[in-house]
Write a protein that binds this DNA or RNA. Structure first.
Lengths: 138, 138
DNA sequence: GTCTTATAAGACTAATACAGTCCAATAACA
DNA sequence: TGTTATTGGACTGTATTAGTCTTATAAGAC
């Protein structure tokens, strides 16, 4: 497993779709049908995307969303953080999570932190443009 | 999130503990108390570890488990796969999972496969010895 | 032989996260 | 004012995770 959730998958697909349309808007319905994503779910996802500034809403007839940032400027880490919070390979790496009873004698926190940073770097250096071109950086 | 589960965390901690004891055995109870891990849960974890050949059981008084492989020989990928199955950043990357309705027009499968491979490589090249020394390879 | 220590294995429960739905409200244009 | 579309909240079902409980089995110590 160790997987990114559906919102992230769908969100990326939707952003790539919007990028194809260049300056035009696409409604949630259009994107949902074109990409086979449940409409109500995509609607939620786009709301979150809006609140993070990835897209801009256009109300009314012929409205929808349009991309406000370029694909080269958006990286996978941002999207992952938006829908799943910070990347933490181990639960105890979370800043607010100091309740692990084994923490004092834990032998793996420190190395896990290093591993975590590697994954963060990998995600951070992968832009949506990279994804669209079927590459990853690093 | 994007996190490794508790069994993996506890399992690694237990293996590192066993390594410290060198050729001696340590019982589940001893490990559980020393590492603050719920005993019944650790018991399950050790059973799985046994079935994968990481440790050997010793029955009876003064029994427990002992390590059968060296820390340099065990990598994080093996442990992750043992307790969480194969690493798949995206759900659709699973071999048996061909039911995604968007698959035909999905724009992210191919790049996600590349990303997935990077993570697999990172885990594979990180041995428990690396973890014990607070490093990761790659 | 039986007592004790320890693993083995299966069923079971509780809590959480995930995926997805439903409905009423609001915004803006024609 | 009707239509198209976003907004936001509550809600449901399912899967995964974490952890517990109980009974059985193995083997050494006395």
């Amino acid at each position: 497993m160790l997987r990114v959730n559906k919102k992230i998958e769908y969100g990326i697909i939707a952003l790539l779709y919007l990028a194809q349309k260049e300056e035009q808007t696409a409604s949630v319905r259009e994107m949902a049908v074109s990409c086979s994503i449940p409409e109500a779910l995509l609607s939620k996802i786009m709301q979150t995307m809006k609140s993070q500034g990835f897209v801009q809403p256009v109300y009314g007839n012929q409205g929808g969303y349009k991309l406000t940032r370029s694909l080269t400027d958006i990286n996978l880490l941002e999207i992952t953080q938006t829908f799943q919070g910070p990347i933490q390979v181990a639960e105890c790496l979370g800043s607010e999570n100091h309740k692990c009873p084994a923490k004092a004698l834990c032998t793996i926190i420190s190395p896990m932190t290093v591993l975590n940073q590697k994954i963060v770097t990998l995600f951070e250096s992968t832009s949506l443009e990279n994804l669209a071109n079927r590459k990853t950086a690093v």
